[in-house]
Design a protein around this nucleic acid. Structure first.
Lengths: 219, 219
DNA sequence: ACAAAAGTGTTCGATATACACCCATGT
DNA sequence: ACATGGGTGTATATCGAACACTTTTGT
């Protein structure tokens, strides 16, 4: 059998939470096709570059971000979806707390956070990819500790709960949430308090580990 | 940014159950690299061929099989894993009941079922891919009706239970299994009986639907 | 004093698990 | 008659869901 060559891109869905809203990072395309439309940050693989390396490069160069949680999502076929011809897209999804986002944004591409609920019209089939990523995000939170990657080092229980509520789109019971989460042993209390607000100060917590771990059960 | 081109393969992990054992289909490589070693069926993508089409083509041409349950697994990088250079591998996993396997096997490649527990030394990183596939298979059985794709049209409750036991590697309680499974409403009793054996004949069941469906819960 | 979020237990229903005997058939 | 898997119910433990009031701070 003869070999044929494909052009391959890596596209990344980067989620974060800002102002109690789940957001996605989009860039504005400066080239054809879909010039001036919003799209996921992405780019072609370089020679001999593994897809994951390419994704990390895009994260750095196009979105101006350093290390964060990232995993592969799915590989989409090119036929029919990209006017440039036969392009295969390996997609990734990444999570970061807002304070790690956009450290050194690439101004030319205008990377901007968009409300997940109110996305603009997107290039290629990027809307479908974002849907897929959200599904994966939810499922990951059910059986891993991935939530740590959306939170800063210190956080309150309320902050943690709000994060789940935003992603799953439903309210949770405060007492049950605490009970269940404490039993998992993922977080530990610090002696610090969240001061400087006009209510009773809350305990600050931190994760016992910030490495990806699978859990038996969850939500 | 300039475009570079990659060569891309599709490799498939095909599981089936034969003689109460979970097995994987392997072919014997006829070309370098890894000539004469066992490997997953796979091949390069043709020009403009989407990865999934290529996987289906491999299923047909290399393994001699028609339609069956198949889904994408993961896309592995090429660097360092394939002596042929920079190859990206999109992997799939497929399931079929033994009676659908090897209808028209490609004799040259010698496609053969191997005990999952006792695999020979494999080409490339195919052992890692099989491990990954087994993990996915187990997880799929926990929240989808995928099990239908490993069973023939008519089957006994015992056959169904054995199938789960084999894949998860542990015994299940007969009564609890029945109770739970019947509540799911995935199967319906037929009037037929499993005759021609020397014990009391068992009821034959069939799936109410043979389309992939997600369930709320499972095992 | 009051506004605002923090923190804390118990009850109830649903689900999962453990467990043993009789039945129908072929030989 | 007997060997073999087929078929059935109950009791207990565990887990998840519902639910309201007191506490601590800043203003």
């Amino acid at each position: 059998m003869s070999k044929f060559y494909q052009s391959v891109t890596a596209d990344i869905v980067i989620f974060t939470i800002e102002n109690d809203e789940l957001k996605v990072l989009l860039i504005k395309r400066v080239k054809k096709p879909f010039k001036n439309q919003w799209a996921l940050p992405g780019g072609f693989l370089l020679e001999n570059e593994p897809p994951e390396k390419a994704a990390l490069r895009v994260l750095r160069d196009k979105a101006g971000m350093g290390n964060m949680y990232m995993e592969q999502l799915y590989t989409f076929p090119g036929s029919g979806r990209d006017p440039r011809g036969n392009v295969i897209t390996v997609t990734y999804f990444a999570l970061a707390p807002i304070n790690k986002m956009l450290a050194k944004p690439n101004k030319g591409q205008n990377p901007t956070l968009h409300l997940l609920k109110k996305l603009p019209e997107l290039a290629f089939d990027h809307e479908k990819i974002i849907d897929y990523a959200l599904k994966r995000l939810r499922s990951k939170l059910e059986y891993t500790n991935a939530i740590y990657s959306l939170l800063p080092k210190y956080f309150t229980f309320n902050h943690l709960q709000k994060t789940y509520e935003l992603i799953f789109g439903r309210k949770l019971d405060k007492r049950n949430f605490r009970k269940k989460f404490m039993m998992l042993g993922l977080i530990k209390s610090t002696k610090k308090l969240h001061k400087g607000i006009r209510q009773r100060p809350a305990q600050l917590y931190q994760f016992t580990s910030r490495k990806p771990t699978e859990l038996k059960k969850f939500f």
